[in-house]
Deep mutational scan, measured.
Amino acid sequence: MDALKSAGRALIRSPSLAKQSWGGGGRHRKLPENWTDTRETLLEGMLFSLKYLGMTLVEQPKGEELSAAAIKRIVATAKASGKKLQKVTLKVSPRGIILTDNLTNQLIENVSIYRISYCTADKMHDKVFAYIAQSQHNQSLECHAFLCTKRKMAQAVTLTVAQAFKVAFEFWQVSKEEKEKRDKASQEGGDVLGARQDCTPPLKSLVATGNLLDLEETAKAPLSTVSANTTNMDEVPRPQALSGSSVVWELDDGLDEAFSRLAQSRTNPQVLDTGLTAQDMHYAQCLSPVDWDKPDSSGTEQDDLFSF
Score class of each variant (00 low, 15 high):
295 P>L: 14
148 C>I: 00
148 C>Q: 00
205 S>N: 10
58 V>K: 14
83 K>C: 04
193 L>G: 14
72 K>P: 10
83 K>Y: 05
42 L>R: 15
38 T>C: 07
133 A>S: 14
248 V>D: 05
143 C>N: 13
245 S>V: 03
121 A>Y: 05
173 Q>P: 01
271 V>D: 07
81 S>F: 01
156 A>E: 06
201 P>K: 02
174 V>M: 00
194 G>M: 03
11 L>Q: 10
186 S>G: 06
210 G>L: 00
160 T>S: 11
125 H>F: 14
228 A>V: 15
66 L>C: 09
8 G>Q: 08
166 K>C: 14
242 L>G: 10
227 S>N: 01
271 V>E: 03
72 K>N: 14
93 S>I: 03
46 M>A: 09
120 T>R: 02
215 L>A: 05
200 T>V: 04
182 R>K: 08
266 R>L: 00
99 L>R: 13
46 M>K: 04
266 R>I: 09
130 A>S: 06
296 D>L: 09
279 Q>V: 04
281 M>L: 08
280 D>H: 02
160 T>Q: 01
273 D>K: 06
262 L>A: 06
204 K>N: 10
119 C>G: 10
281 M>D: 08
200 T>D: 03
266 R>V: 00
235 E>S: 06
112 S>C: 13
175 S>R: 02
228 A>W: 02
72 K>E: 07
98 I>M: 05
16 S>H: 00
113 I>E: 10
79 K>Q: 04
182 R>T: 15
29 R>M: 05
108 I>P: 01
206 L>P: 04
281 M>I: 03
105 N>I: 07
288 S>T: 00
12 I>S: 15
245 S>K: 07
167 V>H: 03
247 V>A: 02
292 W>T: 00
24 G>C: 11
194 G>Q: 02
128 V>P: 03
160 T>I: 14
74 I>G: 08
79 K>G: 13
81 S>V: 03
65 E>P: 05
189 G>E: 03
176 K>M: 11
253 D>E: 05
134 Q>S: 08
264 Q>T: 04
108 I>L: 07
151 R>M: 02
176 K>P: 01
84 K>L: 10
177 E>T: 01
222 P>V: 14
39 R>Q: 08
22 W>C: 03
213 L>S: 04
282 H>Y: 13
154 A>P: 02
156 A>S: 04
246 S>L: 00
121 A>G: 11
60 Q>R: 07
191 D>G: 15
294 K>N: 08
209 T>P: 06
56 T>M: 06
85 L>A: 00
217 E>F: 11
30 K>V: 12
249 W>Y: 03
29 R>H: 04
124 M>D: 09
73 R>T: 10
106 Q>N: 06
3 A>C: 09
295 P>F: 10
42 L>M: 08
292 W>K: 00
246 S>P: 05
259 F>D: 02
216 E>Q: 07
7 A>N: 13
277 T>E: 07
237 P>C: 07
255 L>W: 10
84 K>T: 15
68 A>R: 03
173 Q>V: 10
255 L>R: 15
288 S>Q: 05
169 F>T: 01
256 D>I: 05
280 D>A: 02
